[in-house]
Design a protein around this nucleic acid. Sequence first.
DNA 1: ATTCTGTATTCTGTATACATAATTATTTGC
DNA 2: GCAAATAATTATGTATACAGAATACAGAAT
Lengths: 224, 224
Amino acid sequence: MDGTAERAAGRGIIERQSLHQEIVSRLRDMIIEGELQPGERLYEIPLGESLGVSRTPLREALKSLASEGLVELAPGRGAVVRQFSRKDVHDMLVLIRSMEELAARLACEVASDQDIGRVRELHNRMRAHYQAGERMEYYKLNQQIHSSLVALADNPHLSAFHATLQARLKRIRFIGHEGPERWAAAMAEHEAIVAALERRDVETLVEIIGKHLHNAWLRVREAV
Amino acid sequence: MDGTAERAAGRGIIERQSLHQEIVSRLRDMIIEGELQPGERLYEIPLGESLGVSRTPLREALKSLASEGLVELAPGRGAVVRQFSRKDVHDMLVLIRSMEELAARLACEVASDQDIGRVRELHNRMRAHYQAGERMEYYKLNQQIHSSLVALADNPHLSAFHATLQARLKRIRFIGHEGPERWAAAMAEHEAIVAALERRDVETLVEIIGKHLHNAWLRVREAV
DNA sequence: ATTCTGTATTCTGTATACATAATTATTTGC
DNA sequence: GCAAATAATTATGTATACAGAATACAGAAT
């Protein structure tokens, strides 16, 4: 008919969700996975062609990504994948730490045992991947657990900011390959976090989360 | 010539900054000041005409505002000014409180005496407006002081999130007219905040900021 | 050889046109 | 008279066309 079906078939994009969201999350993934590298200029026409969309919706997506902080827009000279300095990464980790500490405090007050149980479940699955040495699956569940923990606080604004920050850090954290001993330490911290959460032991929980994210900084600081 | 000068003359918009930023901040102001009310549908053509721009840059601006959380986009049915429930406002104040507490801790460590001096200066100007009973000027300086305080932490990511949240709350806080006694209390809290900052007395500072934002909630809770 | 200037090309920014989906109004059946 | 279905209108979503700005290139002058 028109170009839509053709495009959908040709590129495997576009299904039923809004095209805007589709482009945004597609580009987000491309940035996080390093397909589009930091500092890389994003030329609208070739990028649009590679996604199977015209410049108009692509530009709208770029504006969204700029507000999310993944892309930088220089007026008159287009879009560039944002790159983060070492200080940026440190600042973001300080911030995400504060957010997760807040989330922990709130979660201990308002989360149901059932919801906490679901986090425990995720944790168990993550441990299985750890023991199997499956880094990628471990990594994904790790992210998911942090998000779920924040979600327990029942504060959507907090969750949204946390998600935004997590997206900015994702690529960097993914790069930061930890050695076996640090991986084991991270795993132990997670174990302690879930345990403290189940006991609703706020102070311990906050302390471990603080330590956990401090260690995350130690892990990535050389990589940045 | 073309339409540009004509438009600029006709509406007083557009000078030299990027048109995108111009539209975004213009719409942001219109939302904050209640010219565009919560829940109001934003029809692209009439809104664009009132701003003197076509739909394309307007739509890009709306996408940005959606990422900032001031506008809601329902795919296929346009943009609506976002409205916040009482819980939303509470959640946001909890979050902004946590951010300002973090900022306070960091500021006590890294801020220079000179930078703190600038906050003191703003505070003095605000007190003058308070004593003169100039609500609007007071209000604006109040916001500016909170932003400056966060800026002292030297964490741009924190500042950006704080600014976004502050924008979402601006309209609501502006509505929440406090009586003379509460206004006086808020003023006293500010005085204590600046004093504690000058002494770099972290614990007191955090405590007062917490109290200050708790009171802010009490002030607006009926208004929401 | 290098730098400055003028020109050509490429890319971005905006407006407009068209197609599709949503909404409203109207008409038909009960 | 009311409800449901259908037609008409209006709004959104996407693509394209055009204008202006930025960049890259080439040639001339120092």
